[in-house]
Computed example of a mutant assay.
Amino acid sequence: MTFSAVLSNAKPAGATWRALGLLAILLVVLFVFSGRVSVVQVMDNARQAVPLGLIALGQALILMMGRLDLSVGATAGLANVVLAASFSGDMDNMAAALAITVFFGLLVGLANGVLVVVLRIPAFLATLATSLVLAGAILVYTGGSPRGSIPAGFRVITEGWVFGILPWSVVIWIIASLLLLAFVHYSLAGRKMLLSGANARSARRNGIAADRMVIFSFVLASFMATLGGIMLSSITGMASIGIADTYTVDSIAAAVIGGALFTGGVFLPLGAAAGALILFFLQSLLYVLSLPPAARFVLQGSIIILALALSNFKKDR
């Protein structure tokens, strides 16, 4: 790949710029109505947005393949329950707790991939079924009362700051975004995934195992959802049933606001990050304006419509 091609791939897409612009407008509005928006406040919101941001990255990968994953919220919830139970409040259990949690997350992704590719079940139905199975399994395992806790030593990943400037969790989010960006756009396997998402039939004609790419994308998405669940567990310090249920819809919203297309073939991690931050700053704005929580859904839906309308307008031109 030439240097000019690398620069072309690294340059944010128009949809990403629009998402960043919308984020900037939201910050200005928040500043106008609250009287101030400090760097610490922005970073604290970013810290809380990390779980959604990581899950949205995985959802963006699935959208890149022209599919949807409706199990990411349940997968993050599973990670929360398994991690807390495996830790049992003891930092000495960290290696085993993380290994067990990631294992179950990858297993969910593999199951999703097999259901979609081998059994030919539409992705949204397969992952919806998976989410229901996970919800039931969590209830059976916990008996409705999750046990265990996250030790204080582990919670530094979401409570600690690097030189008082960036939360550690935001650094992890940035690294994950850059790694996925590099993988998708600059590695052979990633470009095969991108081509498979854009046109699976054409990819197969060119010798690409498109079905394997689909399975791999679901495994990656579940890994990101698991990582998001781990971060969420670090923030809360405990397990809670249904703690990540809303993240399924929110992850789709964040990815779409950031420029993801349901037709596939596009991966914009910076846009997905902007989308996740927009959703969290919306909550801050609602609090400042003393609006009811239901207003969040109205604003969120309006932003998605605006993002899709702008995307379609640009394509028509």
Rank of each mutant, 00 (worst) to 15 (best):
A182Y: 06
Q300M: 15
R67I: 01
F103D: 09
S234F: 04
G160N: 13
G14I: 10
V28I: 15
N93G: 06
A84T: 12
S177W: 06
L178S: 07
L61H: 00
G164A: 09
L289F: 10
R212H: 13
A239H: 08
V171D: 02
W161Y: 14
A135M: 09
T127K: 02
L22K: 06
G73V: 10
V184T: 06
L106C: 03
Q41M: 12
P12D: 05
A272R: 03
T236G: 07
R120L: 04
I257S: 00
V6L: 14
P151I: 04
T236E: 12
Q59R: 10
I257M: 05
A15W: 01
N112P: 00
G35S: 09
T236V: 12
I25E: 03
V156C: 04
R191N: 06
I174N: 06
A60K: 00
G258C: 08
P146W: 00
I174T: 10
F216V: 14
G14M: 07
I257N: 02
L227P: 00
A294G: 08
R317Y: 13
G275K: 04
Q300D: 10
N206M: 09
S240Y: 09
S34T: 12
A76N: 02
R147C: 09
G271C: 04
R191A: 02
A74M: 01
S149R: 11
L107G: 04
R204W: 15
L220C: 06
V184C: 02
V116G: 01
L310F: 07
F223C: 02
V82T: 11
S145K: 07
R120G: 01
F154G: 02
D92W: 06
A99R: 11
I252V: 14
F163T: 12
V32P: 00
K11E: 11
S233C: 11
L179A: 13
S217A: 15
